[in-house]
Every structure is written in C-alpha cells, then in structure tokens.
Design a protein around this nucleic acid. Sequence first.
DNA 1: GTACCTAACTAGCGATCGTTAGGTTACCTC
DNA 2: GAGGTAACCTAACGATCGCTAGTTAGGTAC
Lengths: 196, 196
Amino acid sequence: MVEPTRRQAIEDVASELFRERGYAGTSIRDIARALAVQGASLYAHVTSKEDVLWAIVDRAATRFEAAATAAEAAADADRPGDPAEALAALVRAHVDVLTSDVDAAGVFVHEWRALAPEHRQAILDRRDAYEARFRRRIEDGIAVGAFAMTDPGIATSTLLSAVNGVAGWYDPNGRLPAARVADHLVELSIRMIANA
Amino acid sequence: MVEPTRRQAIEDVASELFRERGYAGTSIRDIARALAVQGASLYAHVTSKEDVLWAIVDRAATRFEAAATAAEAAADADRPGDPAEALAALVRAHVDVLTSDVDAAGVFVHEWRALAPEHRQAILDRRDAYEARFRRRIEDGIAVGAFAMTDPGIATSTLLSAVNGVAGWYDPNGRLPAARVADHLVELSIRMIANA
DNA sequence: GTACCTAACTAGCGATCGTTAGGTTACCTC
DNA sequence: GAGGTAACCTAACGATCGCTAGTTAGGTAC
C-alpha cells in the first residue's frame, strides 16, 4: 500500500509513533526521521504538530461514528427490536474499525488528552455521543429482559474498555484474522451483560 | 492525609500529573510547581525523572501482586477447586488496589512504556506473570465446565482491559464507593466468561 | 559554639523542542 | 525552454528540557 499523498504518509508514521511513544514523547524530528527527511521539511505539508494529532483523531472518530451508524441501521432493518443483535452489531463495527487501523485507533483511544482544549472538548462530546449509542442499546436490553439488571453506565464503560483493549494486542500479521477477533469480542461482550 | 516524607509527596504529585498528562508530557518543573518549589530542588530527593516513574510503577506492581497472592490464598482455603470463586477474588483484589490509588494504578497501566529499557522489561515480565494468574484460573474453569469454551488468552486480555477501565472513570469522591464498584466489576467479569 | 542535616535556593550547562525563513532541486505542462 | 509546483534543504530563532554545581537558611546534637 503506497500513500497517495505526502500528507497521508506523515499521518501514518505519526500514528505509529504516537501510539508507541505517545504524542508528547514523539518529536517532529522523530516523525521526519522515519520518513528520511529533515524535521523542518514537514512544515510544507503540516501547519503544526497538534494539527497532525487532530487529523488522526478526527478521522478515527469519524470512522467509528460512520461504522456505528451503518451497523445500527443494518441491525434495525434486519431484526428490529432486538437489543442483543443491535449491540452485537455495534461491537463488531467497533472492532472492525479498530483492527483496520490499530495505530490510528490506538491514538484515538489514548492520546485525545494531548489535544488542544477546543479539539479536546470536541472529541469528548463526540465520544459521549458515541458511548450513548451503546448505553441506549444496553438500557433497551435491560428493559425487555434480554440483559441482566446492571448499572448501564458502568456496563457501557466496562464493555468499551474491554473492546478497546484489542488495540493493545492486535497484530495485523498475527495468527488471528480480524474477523475472528471480532467474533470473540462480540461473544465476550454480549455474555458480559446477558441474562444468564 | 499528610505525606510522611518529602520523597513520598513528590511521588504522589508525580502520580497525579503523569496520569493526567503522561510521563513525557510532564516536566520536572511541573512537578516542582505543584509542590511550590523550584525544579532543581527536587534533585535533593530524587536521582532522576525516570527514577520517580519507576518508583511509582514498581510500588503499584508490588501492590497488585501482593493483593493477588492474598486473594488466591483466601479463595483456595475457603472454596478450593472453585475457579469462579478464585477468579472473582482476583478481580476484586485487582479493583481494590486500583481504587485505593487511582493515580498510581493509572500510571502503572498506561505509562510503563516510558520506562528505561531494563525497567520496562522487568515490568513486562511481572505483568506477564500477573496475567498468567488470571489465565490459569480461566483455563481451570473451562476444564471443569464452569466457564464457556473461549480462547483463554483473549479472554484474559479482555477481562483485564475491562477491569483496568475503572482507572479511567473511578472518582474517590463520586457516588459509588469503591466496594460497590468492585461488586459490579466482579459481576461483569464472571458473567463475561461464565457458561450460560 | 561547632558540626551536621534537611530542604530549599540561584545560576546555568548542553541538548532538544516546535517552528520560521529563505533557498535549491527535480519534474510536469504548455 | 519558460513557468509552475511539490518536496526538500540548511540555518537558526526563542523556549523549554533534564540535570549539575555551589550556596544559604534553619533546626538538632554534641
């Protein structure tokens, strides 16, 4: 896979480095070195270091949102009124986005704190809205007796933490294909809140 | 709670800042400012910045290990041969350590990457051994039919990610006392891998 | 009163940080 | 072959980084 634009190549290596060493632990010159270029040369393609972080985080957030929207639409069309099905679709969509670009997703999950205040707040708002989608399905499931009676807030946070853990160990070249990983996570997630 | 020694006060402030902004995102002068002292003054109590991180991480790791040892001993004495009971005790012990010092635990979970190579490797080894305790109980449970048939490695990683998520939202002054949080996490964890 | 200890200070070192400015090279298009 | 453009260069700016050195102030012990 060759990068279409130089800007994209910068964001890709930045994703990798930000994920490995964190935003603050990565210098502009580190990114440049990975591209065999001088640090100052990056500023022909980028306006600031934070701008690179924001681009990565914003894109990842958008991909998570779009995948969740598609998943919910499909689940509601396929088996309307089935909270377990809808939640499973959400989890699968989430894991798919995660595994399709572990670096960017890992940065999204861990490095949003390093964003400038306005960007940081914007991401927090979007993250809240995203989490609310999961919580709504969990609440629905509890209401119809499909899920066990548990604190929906804690269940939602814990479920997403569990799923996001994938970013910590998934290896695109590992033994498990992304689809199998998603299978496992869907299974564990649903069972976590299911009514025994 | 007043710090007994100046060194302890430094580590406590550092835990808070490292957790909020990360190790690389926190300067020696930041820590000193929080203590109303000049940056250089810290070096009377500390040999290096990394030494502070290592002290925090090492202590947290030791507390997790000790709590797990005690929990396993109690569970094995109380109800030997019951994997669900042993795993529940491990999870409860883990959450207890987590909530008793969210800052230090959060640093342990997220900032071990910033350690110097030798320290980093040492923590990785200990973390592997720690995770193996959980995996062993999960494998035992699968063997006796108490837990569902799932990949023990993925189940262990996902379970610990779920539980560690507590470090992201637990508030010592919040509505939920630590014991209730532990109850919820034990419930969710066991159900996640239990045989329905 | 002298010696020691703890805890802080000021001053500054060399390195690295994000970023700017201005100039050079290679290639594409007309 | 002139003009345009994308990509990169060198040099350097002011700020901040982790850390060292040397000193001062106040308390305690002999």
